[in-house]
Every structure is written in C-alpha cells, then in structure tokens.
Design a binder for these strands. Structure first.
Lengths: 193, 193
DNA sequence: GCTATGATTGGTCAGTCGTCCAAGACGATC
DNA sequence: GATCGTCTTGGACGACTGACCAATCATAGC
C-alpha cells in the first residue's frame, strides 16, 4: 500500500528534468539551457538539478542520448524487417512531419554540435550513429548492394542535412527525394528477383 | 598623405570584430560568444562592440553571412564553369580538408541553428542558400537533367549533413561519396556527348 | 517508537552576461 | 587656431549564471 515512496518521487523528478531538458535544448540551444529555466519547466526547485545530476552537462547529455536512442533503434528495426528502399522511404516520410524548427529536430542538431565539444557525449553519440549505420549497411548487404557502407553514410548525411535545410526552408519536401535515393539503394540490375 | 584616419581605424576595428566572431562562433557556439571574449580576441576594449554594432546578435549575423557568402558564391561560379558532376566532386574534395570540428565547419552549422531562432538571419541565409541551389539546378538543367531541382536539394543536404557526421567520426571520407553522387548528377543515358 | 536513507528547500557564492554612457582623444575641415 | 564628427576608454547597471550547502522534510526498515 505504499502509494508514493520518496524514491519514486525522486525517479519522477529525474524523468521530468530529462523531459524538460529535451524540450529546452531545442528551444533555447544547448548553451541556452540553465539550471533555473530547467527547474521552472520541470516544476521543480532549482537546487534539485544538482542533487539528481552530477552537473548540468551530465543532465543535458542524458537527455540527448535518451531522446535519440529510441528513435534510431526503432528505425534500425524497421530496416531489418522491410526492404531497405522502402524503409528509407518511410524514414523520409517521418521527416516531413517535422518542420526543422521544432525542438525535436533541433535537439538532434544541437547534440551533434555539442558532441564536438564534449568528448563523453561524442563517444555516446558515436556508438548510436555507428549502430544505425551498421543496420543500414547490413540491410543493403542482404540485397547484394555493391557499395553498402558508403551508401549508408550518404543516406544518413542526407537525412540530417535535410533537417538542417528544412529549418531554413520549411517548404522542402523529403518525399521528393525518395526516387533519387531509390536509385542508390536498389542494386544496379533494375529490381529483378 | 592621410596616413591613418580614425575612420580607417573604425573600419579596421569592425573587420577585426567580425573576424573574431567568425572564429569564436565555431569555437564556443553561437550562444557562447560574449562581448568581452569577442573584444579580447579582437584586441579591442569591450565597450567598442556596442559602439560599432547595434547589438551582439547583429555582429554575429554579419559575421556568419560574410563567412558563408563568399564560399557559396565561389562554389556557384565553379558550377557555372565546369561539368556539374566534376564540380560536385571538387566540392566534396574541399570538405575532406575540414575535420568537422574546426571553427569553419561549425560556423556553418551554428548559423543554420541560429537562423531558426533569428528571423532576420533566417531570411539572409535563405537568400544565400536559395541562390546556391539555383546555381546547382541551372548547371544540371543545362545537361538536360530530369530532376534538377530535387537533385540540387539532395546534394546540398548531403554536403551539410556530411559535415555534421564528420564531427562525430573524423575518419569519414567525402571522396568516397563521389561515385554515388555521380550516378545522380549524370543524365540517365550514360554520359554521351 | 527510532534511525537511516533519500528528497527537498532556500539561499549563498563568485563570476559573467548584454547594454549603456559620460568623458576624453583623435584626425579632418574650415 | 577652432570646430566637428568619429572613435575610444573605463566603468557602471541590473540581471543572470553553475555550483554548492546546511537545514529540513518524508519515507522505509527495524
């Protein structure tokens, strides 16, 4: 009958702080997130930030990794199940649901930049990205693609670069890129099998 | 005989401040650049920043635009002179000279993000990017490329996205992408004429 | 009951921030 | 010479920053 132990309360506060950080990184930028703004958004006293997390950087790191991880692993699973070209098409359709200026999109870009200045974050993000690239590569290899790894690098660059450009020009449509990428993902002898 | 008028001195101070901003945006991030750090790097008293520029944001804007403009117009000229596929190859070779973590590369990415939060910068950057996209499109149209504009969008996304990823994994080589992009830039009937 | 253990509070600390301004210094023009 | 516009100085203002801490709270296990 222990309704709400203080251990649970602590866990929930941590979750709220991480969620607030995920919103604020996109809204204000990585360096724009302060402990007080964070606490206000999470409806928590400022002092709690440094009680639950070693540092502000550590909280931001955890928030970024926890936001990116699930998205990338979900997409990787999709690659394992469907045809690579179809999976890429589905991913591009997903991108069109974002504007490029929303916190979710900007969180990704902010994390990339923050990783260039924070070795710990860099390593964690590298693992995520490397796993995703490996998933694309494996999917292409299973279709006897001759340049699987290079194509995987290009696909990931297209996705992140497109988000960057969509922030500048919201009218851009990722769906229009599908036929071009399909030419790269399909093996050269036109879709026999 | 006017050796060094104070008007000249002011002009030079402005130039030094802009140059310092171009370095510091990449090193510390857009929000990490302060008037005092800026003044120190430019070897100038802090008070001068707000004398010569309306605000810190205005200085950062000008620095970003002046850094990106020449690079993009140079590349656009290359596109007008050479074969589109060769021009793209030259641009990718250029990218490999950067590490993805150097101030020059990060300035671009930082500017993209800052543009999503600063409408004035957004419009100025949009003009730059749109002009560059038009140059690529025109070069492809001159070769009777069927999907010129979409291909241009993809090429630009690849370039910027690749810089993003290179910051995470410096071993990535843009040169390896050349054959893939060549398949997209060349017209379908393999390089006749 | 009592005691650990963890959670929370409110505040302090030494800095840094963007912006502004009065006073002075400089060179060009009359 | 005097005057004018431009540039430069040094400091001030209030606000905000990350980090830290002693005191207090609530709960779990004994």
């Amino acid at each position: 009958m222990t309704g709400r132990t203080n251990v649970d309360r602590g866990r929930e506060v941590r979750a709220r702080l991480v969620a607030a950080a995920q919103e604020l990184i996109g809204e204000l930028g990585w360096n724009g997130v302060s402990t007080r703004i964070l606490a206000e958004r999470a409806e928590v006293r400022p002092g709690l930030v440094h009680y639950h997390f070693e540092s502000l950087q550590a909280l931001l790191r955890q928030a970024a990794i926890e936001a990116m991880g699930p998205l990338l692993t979900d997409a990787a699973q999709l690659l394992g199940a469907a045809d690579p070209a179809d999976a890429v098409e589905a991913m591009l359709a997903d991108i069109d649901r974002y504007t490029g200026t929303d916190p979710a999109s900007l969180l990704f870009i902010e994390a990339y930049i923050a990783a260039t200045r924070d070795p710990v974050l860099r390593e964690q993000m590298y693992d995520l990205v490397a796993a995703f690239r490996a998933a694309i590569t494996a999917a292409l290899v299973s279709k006897d693609h001759p340049d699987a790894e290079t194509t995987a690098v290009l696909i990931m660059a297209v996705i992140d670069g497109f988000i960057l450009h969509k922030g500048l020009d919201p009218q851009l449509s990722a769906a229009r890129l599908v036929p071009l990428l399909r030419r790269l993902t399909e093996t050269e002898n036109g879709a026999d099998r």
